[in-house]
Design a protein around this nucleic acid. Structure first.
Length: 441
DNA sequence: GACATGTTTCCTGCTT
DNA sequence: GAAGCAGGAAACATGT
């Protein structure tokens, strides 16, 4: 199951630690069902009999058409046979409007939807939550929770995209992805986090929230989430202050200023003393008991000491843990010790990034490139000349060939962006490459 | 203008 | 023999 899931259901979850985290949670669920399917308290997580406040999208109905890629009967023969029924769901919202949707919904086993939720073509958070954690959505049945909107539906979320953005640019999906990372780093079962209560929050909203706002949304982990977000924000500020100011950064700073203005306009106070204590304590020791709005940090007029290497890295992993692992890279320094601005002419256009993106793009994966073992970062080039053609198009170079492309790829060995594929016989001998520990982003 | 980065181009020799 | 791999060397485009 683990092997199968890595290969078939998780290419869209590009972060290895996320895959393992979600998989291990899924395995625990499956184990509970296997032990006692009838009395399983979490069975409603997979049941279609309980009306749940989540908008059913067409992607949900697609689930069943893909679900047979993973047949739970091979593992748990006792699970119920497929059935078909109509369900009705409600979507409460802030203005008390309720969207009511009736849709033909096919349920197979309690297990298959989990696999379907992870299917690369179906990777969307609503599907994941709908079939993964009943409690996450069940709280919507509580009128007290009706003030919060449900998790945005119909949106496929890149679970690492938020890492390349600044918090104030986070979408609602990025916020959810961040919550998943926090849950993983702190060994919190995702169903224990009140994620749906953050579902209407963008990064800007989080910035303006007090600790009490976090606690109101999640009484148990609110303070932790608040502290994590503060820490992230401080580190982000630190990197910004250290880096040369590019037009993009300048733009970002303007957004931050707007946030601060908005914060002030909303009557939120700014306490310089709290800021001073933060500066005194350094970036790694945030006082989680502070109740100052997060954007007080934008008041910082001096540099904040810090390593610039804040990382979401899980303690688990080998030295070969590789690409896409959520991390903030060290700022490269010039000879004079100042951080260098990243080269612009290849920004977002590096060959390995192009290949990474091709591995995430269903139009090229698996027809042009495909994962051999996503957990190990091993991928295979299926159509070498086609890949070279696409790379040439990207670089406006009609003379690009696979020979040249492969030469460029071999330069990555020295930088550890690629590492030699183990000669274990597990993989084909040709056209197989492996991402290395320097493939970050 | 020197230098750094990230390729690109061409090449030889080797392996599959 | 074709395709791919490995790596040296030089050139190139772009940014600092």
């Amino acid at each position: 199951f683990f092997k199968s899931s890595n290969n078939q259901f998780f290419p869209s979850i590009t972060d290895r630690s996320n895959r393992h985290f979600l998989l291990s949670s899924a395995k625990q669920r499956l184990r509970k069902i296997a032990i006692d399917p009838s009395s399983n308290t979490h069975s409603s997580a997979f049941s279609v009999h309980i009306p749940r406040p989540i908008l059913i999208s067409s992607q949900h109905t697609d689930i069943t058409s893909h679900a047979n890629q993973f047949n739970p009967a091979f593992i748990y023969p006792s699970v119920p046979l497929p059935c078909t029924q109509t369900r009705t769901d409600y979507l409460p919202s802030n203005d008390s409007q309720q969207a009511c949707i009736s849709e033909k919904h096919t349920a197979i086993s309690p297990v298959a939807p989990i696999a379907a939720a992870f299917n690369p073509s179906l990777m969307c958070l609503p599907a994941l939550f709908d079939h993964f954690g009943g409690e996450i959505l069940r709280s919507h049945m509580n009128p007290a929770a009706a003030q919060f909107k449900p998790i945005p539906n119909n949106e496929r979320v890149d679970l690492t995209r938020f890492l390349s953005k600044e918090p104030q640019e986070w979408t609602m999906g990025d916020v959810i992805a961040w919550l998943l990372h926090v849950a993983e780093r702190n060994d919190i079962p995702i169903e224990d986090l009140e994620m749906q209560k953050f579902a209407n929050c963008t990064g800007m909203v989080l910035i303006q929230m007090h600790e009490t706002d976090f606690q109101q949304r999640d009484a148990v982990y609110g303070s932790l989430l608040y502290a994590e977000f503060r820490k992230l924000l401080i580190e982000e500020r630190s990197i910004n202050k250290c880096a040369y100011k590019s037009p993009e950064r300048a733009s970002t700073s303007r957004v931050t200023d707007d946030a601060r203005v908005s914060c002030i306009n909303n009557g939120l106070s700014v306490n310089p003393s709290a800021l001073s204590s933060l500066l005194m304590s350094g970036s790694n020791s945030v006082n989680s008991s502070s109740t100052q709005p997060l954007d007080t940090l934008s008041q910082v007029g001096t540099d904040i000491s810090g390593s610039g290497t804040f990382s979401f890295n899980s303690p688990v992993g080998s030295d070969e843990t590789f690409m896409l692992r959520p991390t903030y890279c060290k700022v490269r320094k010039n000879k004079d010790g100042r951080p260098r601005k990243h080269s612009q002419h290849t920004k977002g256009n590096k060959l390995w990034e192009f290949i990474r993106d091709a591995l995430k793009d269903p139009t090229t994966c698996p027809s042009v490139v495909r994962w051999e073992d996503p957990a190990e970062g091993v991928f295979r080039i299926v159509e070498s000349e086609k890949l070279a053609q696409l790379w040439g198009e990207r670089k406006n170079n009609q003379k690009m060939t696979y020979e040249k492309l492969s030469r460029a790829m071999r330069t990555y060995y020295e930088k550890r962006i690629l590492v030699p594929v183990p000669k274990t016989g597990l993989y084909p001998k040709k056209l197989v490459y492996k991402f290395g520990p320097s493939a970050l982003g």
